[in-house]
């Protein structure tokens, strides 16, 4: 309760500082809008449904791209951890491409796929896949070999050992990788939506870029806030429960 109070107080003070900066005319009100006008924008955008529609479009793109990233990344990560050949080939590619900022995929995607949903999907998959491969690989390499030996003495065969022992044993690493993959997917999608203007769906990034075109900074900042809030919400709703469970079972971290 006390934590909630101090945290709320902090944000109220922050908004007040913002408000006074606008009053002091540090920048023209066209460039730095008042918190009230940002709130006004958010209210109307929520009421007329445009913010909700854009969020839905963005989340749909994100989930499909991120889903492909996980479905490909975890098995490929298992393969690179298991086979020397895969480590020396696909593993090297993953390590290299992971260092490439995901926005760098946008020009290529535009040339290959044009202004389509395919371009979007490509950028999101490329943004998230490599880091998921690498953390899965890393997680599996960190599993103590004695777990697999113990499982073998109990009569577990190869496949059973991989699905019931090695994969769960690497879960803390894999979940961290999934979280990182989510963050990368989110960033790359925003980059893609800002650069790729298509008519098949109007996402949050496009709403943001639209705000810039209209020179309405209240919309730009409002959409930015919405993006931050969605990121926080996903972290709290999707990843926190899993991480909490892992910490409790493994006895790691704060309880």
């Amino acid at each position: 309760m006390k934590r909630l109070f101090s945290s709320t107080l902090f944000f109220i003070v922050l908004i007040l500082i913002w408000h006074f900066l606008v009053l002091a005319k540090v920048k023209s009100p066209v460039l730095l809008p008042d918190p009230v006008s940002v709130w006004e924008y958010l209210r109307t955008a929520i009421l007329d449904g445009s913010l909700f529609d854009a969020t839905l479009v963005t989340i749909r793109r994100l989930l499909s791209g991120y889903g492909i990233g996980i479905l490909l990344g975890i098995p490929v990560g298992m393969l690179t951890a298991r086979f020397r050949f895969m480590e020396d080939t696909v593993g090297v590619i993953a390590l290299g491409l992971q260092t490439l900022p995901s926005v760098c995929w946008v020009p290529l995607a535009l040339v290959w796929f044009g202004q389509t949903e395919g371009a979007m999907l490509f950028v999101v998959v490329m943004g998230s896949l490599w880091s998921i491969i690498i953390s899965t690989d890393n997680g599996i390499r960190n599993v103590p070999p004695i777990f697999a030996r113990a499982a073998r003495t109990m009569g577990a065969k190869q496949f059973y050992t991989w699905t019931r022992v090695i994969l769960p044993a690497s879960a803390p690493f894999v979940v961290t990788g999934m979280k990182q993959g989510w963050a990368f997917a989110w960033r790359s999608l925003m980059a893609a939506e800002i650069f790729v203007t298509i008519l098949t769906g109007f996402g949050l990034g496009q709403l943001l870029e639209y705000g810039r075109d209209l020179h309405s900074m209240d919309q730009v900042i409002g959409v930015m806030l919405a993006i931050v809030l969605i990121g926080l919400l996903v972290d709290k709703l999707l990843f926190s429960p899993i991480e909490h469970f892992l910490h409790r079972r493994w006895g790691t971290g704060r309880t």
Partner: peptide, 26 residues
């Protein structure tokens, strides 16, 4: 390896993602 010869190692080698019962059930 076979279930007719079970091994106990120096480290317990218990699976941390399962509870006590889950480990014995494995």
């Amino acid at each position: 390896p076979g279930r007719d010869r079970m091994v106990m190692f120096q480290e317990p080698a218990l699976f941390p993602w399962l509870d006590v019962m889950g480990n014995v059930l494995f």
